[in-house]
Amino acid sequence: MSWFQRTDKGIKTSTKDKMDAPEGLWYKTPSGSIIHMRELKANAYVCPEDGYHVRIGSKEYFEILFDNNEFKELDASLSSGDPLNFVDSKPYPKRLKKVQEKTKLVDACRTAVGKMNQLEVVVACMDFSFIGGSMGSVVGEKISRAIDHALKHKIPFIMISKSGGARMMEAGYSLMQMAKTSAKLHLLSEAKVPYISYLTDPTTGGVTASYAMLGDFNISEPGALIGFAGPRVIRETIGRDLPEGFQSAEFVLEHGFLDFIVDRRHVKSKLSSLLKMLK
């Protein structure tokens, strides 16, 4: 029997016979372009039709940057405590455990050392899927330790930022990470060890106000949202309308806060060339 029946109203397919594509097989960009996930992964998670950069995490960035995806992870087991006994809808430790189980991550940042086009580098990468990539005490500590490793071995440090800002559940402890990481980066600068800050979508809040904008070179992906406070907060504070796209990477570049924008498909070669030039 045919798998469909033709009626006066057109072709009618029974529900049990419909052929649905498996979840996660295709990806649709905001502009409507559709791409197979296999092709998207092979293209560094950038849609070839419209150049849309899909949000990815540390796992994917490490695959893109490290040669043969070979690296040694640093401080992999470092996990947040609950210094303030924070309780909102649920106790902070319970929320951490739930997010850790869901994301298979320990916290919002991973650090690793490995080779990128045969150049040894230390890479720290934030994961937005872990409580919005929020900067807590563990994020600050892991970044600081990664900088110490780069300083000790005199190898370049690359920071990949993707964050909604400071982690409210750790309050002042979270805000202290801005000063701590900035101080560590000053030591890196004094030792003349290169630091490249790579901003991705979105990079906001205390992360933008600290290590994300302190690179020897500040670079970004196309279309990334970069800013401190959100547009609504800024509009209400200054009492005037804001320019269209004023927090986009392109606008930030135009006003001198970025050195250049790089397509993710070329970031490994660009970073390697830049570090070879500095060397």
Rank of each mutant, 00 (worst) to 15 (best):
M116L: 12
M116T: 11
M116H: 03
N117A: 11
N117F: 07
N117G: 09
N117W: 02
N117D: 15
L119Q: 15
L119I: 15
E120P: 07
E120W: 03
V121L: 04
V121Y: 05
V121F: 02
V121I: 14
V122G: 06
V122Y: 02
V122T: 07
V122I: 11
V122S: 01
A124T: 11
C125M: 10
C125G: 11
C125E: 02
D127V: 09
S129G: 09
S129D: 14
S129P: 07
F130T: 01
F130M: 09
I131V: 12
I131S: 06
I131Y: 10
G133L: 05
G133P: 07
G136I: 03
G136W: 02
S137T: 15
V138A: 03
V138M: 11
V139C: 07
V139F: 10
G140S: 05
G140A: 08
E141S: 10
E141F: 01
K142V: 14
K142W: 05
K142L: 09
S144Y: 08
S144R: 04
R145K: 15
A146P: 11
A146R: 09
A146M: 07
A146W: 03
I147G: 02
D148W: 02
D148Y: 04
A150E: 05
A150N: 04
L151K: 10
K152F: 08
K152A: 13
K152H: 11
I155V: 15
I155C: 06
I155F: 04
I155H: 07
P156V: 04
P156Y: 05
P156S: 12
F157C: 13
F157S: 01
I158Q: 01
I158V: 14
M159K: 05
M159C: 13
M159E: 07
I160H: 10
I160C: 03
K162N: 13
K162F: 09
S163H: 08
G165K: 01
G165L: 05
G165H: 10
A166S: 15
R167G: 12
R167A: 14
M169I: 01
M169T: 13
M169H: 08
E170W: 00
E170T: 02
E170F: 03
A171T: 04
G172Q: 13
G172L: 14
L175T: 00
M176C: 09
M176F: 05
M176R: 13
M178W: 00
A179K: 14
K180S: 06
K180F: 01
K180W: 00
K180P: 00
T181H: 10
T181N: 06
S182M: 06
A183R: 15
A183C: 14
A183N: 15
A183L: 15
K184R: 15
H186Y: 13
H186Q: 14
L187M: 11
L187R: 08
S189M: 11
S189I: 13
S189E: 13
E190N: 12
A191G: 12
K192A: 10
V193M: 06
P194T: 11
